[in-house]
Amino acid sequence: MAHRDLDKLFSTARSDCPSDALLDRYHWRVLDDELQQSVSAHLHDCPMCRQRLEFREKGFHAFDAARPEAMLDVIRSGLNKGVFSTLISGIFKTPLRIATTAVGALVLLVSLVFVLYSYNNVPGASSSGMRSMGGLELRVFVERSGRVSEALSGDEFHPGDRLRFKVSLPHEGFVLVVGQEDSGRLYRVFPIDSGKGERMQSSISLLPGAVRLDSSLGKEKLLLVLCSQPVDIHMLSSSGHSGIEVPSGCISSIFELNKTKVP
């Protein structure tokens, strides 16, 4: 295959047609006058590019499956952390606010120390296999019929539902999300291409990728595991219907799915 064949193979338009980017900018009317007129003249003579422009003019309506409202919901949800940061930065605008914040932070710190002290003195409490009080959290967002909403543990889910996950991590470590079928079998959810945990910073993050629920019905569990050492799905053991054992030094958070038929 010669070079010119590659050009022909990949190009989405004739060589004298405006590029996608140029046509986009023409559509948004951000080109200078001369270029805007030159593209107009080309469009006059080129039915293919007129079709390309008409496609742009339809916006999201050109794509049946785009679901822009659902996408915006997910984007807003992914930006929650940013909004929180903005509010925090706004508080620090004046010295008076700084002083007020310092007093508030001190009160919060004392309360936190008290809560942690109380928690650590609960008989039998250990980090292994228990939900962390320090903020480890698995939030689940479900996309169903084009609408995205946050689900709660124990909610009903249906085959075909598409799930995305947001995790709140109290400290840096290796993150793994696994699912447990009703039979007790474990399967990996995140990272999607490996059974090994991915190293992540302490943060609230929307995990990349999504999973679609299969046709099996019944109760399933999702387990978010955070470990200070590298963790692998094989290091977790399923204890039948009662739960999942995680290695020592790991903390976990469980989310329950109740999979039922599509009504």
Partner: peptide, 13 residues
């Protein structure tokens, strides 16, 4: 999103 979203979507698709 309204202005540039369709272009991003089209390109990604």
């Amino acid at each position: 999103f309204e202005k540039y979203g369709p272009s991003v979507y089209r390109r990604a698709r």
